[in-house]
Simulated scan of single mutants.
Amino acid sequence: MKSLKKLAVTSMACAALLGFAATSHAAYQLSDEVKDATPALLQASQIGVKTNVNKDLANLPDKDAILVLSFGTTFQDSRAKTIEATVDAIKAAHPGVKVVTAFTSHIIIDRIKANEGLDIPTPEKALEQLKAEGYTRIAMTSLDIIPGMEYTYKDAVYNLHKNDFKKMTFGTPLMYWQGQEGQDDDITATMQALSTQFPKMGKKDAVLIMAHGTPHPANAYYAVMQDRLNELGLSNALIFSVEGWPHLDTVIPQLKAKGIKNVTLMPLMMVAGDHANNDMAGDEPDSFKSILEQEGFKVDAYIHGLGENAAVQKLFVEKADQAWEALQAK
């Protein structure tokens, strides 16, 4: 669009009007030809890493923290190997910095409290506690896969609480940029990272990658993922979803047309929780594994969350780094 251009340096004009600044992968800036931009138009141009500066708190000392936001899981083993391992990697990249984890699923938080006695905060409670402890600048980062409904919840938290702090930034999910206008191609990078866990495949072998799916328009990301897999020469790796599109019955005809006999199922989810263990690989007749076997395929299941993949962990650390760098930017 002619009214938007890539923001490569901090925009002092927009910072003065909106209280935000950006790094090279942070956002877009309205064209200089726009002379009378309203606050709503300026806010709409904030795409990518978001930054808010509350000038009323400018005299407070800098005390920085990172808040890592995840949906969460009640599966303890997977939680340790995925969420906790990724948070540990973020901590290792930021020694000496306070790093706090919050879950967005209130149901999961309640179940963990009841079954394990652990108090994991919601994002709102985590921010309240950080403020009470005197932290004035917060870099929020997300362990979401795409910018769907869960990421929208976290974005709402940012918008509702950004002025509680001297400065707050909010990073992007694992897949956000698609290589447009010189930006990073998060989709290709993630598909490359995902492919490191693929088994060796012959012409009659395929990998079925089970995404969650969403009623949010971000469901369209799955089509882009499939496009990138094809571009990478991984056309025998097919995306389908539990609750969105494409469905399993969308890809089964494609498998048969390709002459596929052997299928490996794996989740495109941060953790290997209920969807991976039951919907995907369960023994019930309506599980995806059972349905594929009924269709004549030999099926193996790779029951590991994306957070166990070292290459994916690295990408999440980079996302946290971007939010942190925006927090440190002058």
Rank of each mutant, 00 (worst) to 15 (best):
P285M: 09
P285E: 13
P285H: 07
P285S: 11
D286T: 13
D286K: 11
S287A: 03
S287M: 05
S287K: 03
S287Q: 07
S287W: 07
S287H: 02
F288A: 10
F288W: 15
F288N: 14
F288D: 10
F288Q: 14
F288R: 15
F288Y: 12
F288S: 09
K289E: 02
K289T: 03
K289N: 07
S290Y: 10
S290W: 04
S290A: 15
S290V: 02
S290N: 02
I291S: 01
I291D: 05
I291R: 04
I291K: 13
I291Q: 12
I291G: 00
L292M: 13
L292W: 09
L292F: 09
L292Y: 09
E293L: 06
E293G: 09
E293I: 12
Q294D: 13
Q294W: 11
Q294K: 12
Q294Y: 02
Q294C: 06
E295S: 09
E295F: 01
E295R: 10
G296D: 03
G296Q: 06
F297R: 03
F297D: 03
F297T: 02
K298M: 15
K298Y: 08
K298I: 10
V299L: 03
V299W: 08
D300W: 04
D300K: 13
D300N: 11
A301E: 01
A301S: 13
A301K: 02
Y302T: 06
Y302V: 04
Y302K: 15
Y302G: 00
I303E: 08
I303H: 01
I303T: 10
I303W: 00
I303Y: 00
H304T: 11
H304E: 15
H304A: 15
G305K: 00
G305A: 06
L306V: 09
L306Y: 06
L306C: 09
L306E: 06
L306N: 01
G307D: 05
G307K: 09
G307R: 10
N309T: 11
N309F: 01
N309P: 06
N309M: 05
A310Y: 05
A310I: 14
A310S: 12
A310W: 06
A310K: 15
A311K: 13
A311D: 12
A311H: 14
A311Q: 12
A311L: 07
A311F: 08
A311M: 01
A311C: 01
A311S: 14
A311E: 14
V312R: 06
V312T: 08
Q313R: 13
Q313Y: 05
Q313V: 00
Q313D: 04
Q313S: 07
K314A: 12
K314L: 04
K314S: 12
L315H: 08
L315T: 00
L315P: 05
L315Y: 08
L315S: 05
L315Q: 10
L315V: 04
F316Q: 04
F316D: 00
V317I: 11
V317N: 05
V317M: 09
V317C: 07
E318C: 03
E318Q: 12
E318N: 11
E318D: 13
E318H: 00
K319T: 03
K319R: 14
K319N: 10
K319E: 01
A320S: 13
A320L: 01
A320T: 10
